[in-house]
């Protein structure tokens, strides 16, 4: 179940990697883009720490699902937003923060699930799988951008997120897994 979680495009933040390709459509200048990178790091840090805080209160699973759906909503809003630099920067900053938060929640889920036996190996292997969740959606969204346009690319990002969540629910049903909060783990911790 955790392996499925690591490869689905839900909460992967694929669009962040394509920001340079679409910034011009929102009339964002190179200077604004450079400044955005610095502020983006700050919002990512804030997002990650906030997600950690939230995970301790409502659980890592609920945090992950909540932030993932907020990312989908942000992408749909982005697709229909006015093409101005202010909208671009605000939505992208929000998206960066949500992405970092989703990663933090996902890592929390993984770390809780793996237990302690060969923990470093299990964590590294699962985290390597997480690279796939970014790789194939990026390639797909890049192709959609070139063939259909930016709006379609952003909606594709949102659709992939919805599809990823659907895959997660199906996997949970098949594996009789309950998306619960903290403490859900594959096996008891052993010392």
């Amino acid at each position: 179940m955790i392996a499925v979680l690591c490869v689905i495009p839900f909460g992967a933040g694929t669009e962040a990697g394509l920001i340079g390709a679409i910034a011009r459509e929102w009339a964002v200048t190179p200077d604004q883009l450079a400044g955005f990178s610095a502020v983006g790091a700050a919002t990512s840090i804030a997002g990650a720490i906030a997600a950690g805080w939230l995970s301790m209160r409502i659980g890592a699973w609920k945090t992950y699902v909540l932030l993932g759906w907020l990312m989908i909503a942000a992408m749909i809003g982005f697709a229909f937003s006015p093409r101005t630099a202010a909208y671009f920067i605000c939505i992208e900053l929000l998206y960066r923060g949500l992405t970092a938060g989703c990663y933090a929640a996902l890592l929390g889920i993984v770390m809780i699930a793996i237990g302690q036996g060969a923990a470093a190996t299990k964590a590294a292997s699962l985290w390597s799988l997480a690279n796939f969740a970014v790789a194939y959606p990026t390639a797909l969204e890049g192709a959609v951008h070139d063939h259909v346009g930016t709006g379609a690319m952003l909606l594709t990002d949102a659709a992939l997120g919805v599809a990823g969540f659907g895959a997660l629910l199906i996997a949970a049903r098949l594996l009789a897994f309950r998306l619960s909060s903290p403490g859900t783990r594959a096996s008891p911790r052993t010392v």
């Binding site: 990650a48 950690g52 793996i114 302690q116 590294a124």
Partner: peptide
Amino acid sequence: KGIMAYDVPVAKLASASGFYTA
């Protein structure tokens, strides 16, 4: 990651993950 798995109480793992990502 190994240190996190062994030395952080389960209840604080999510918070540690947030700081790790940050």
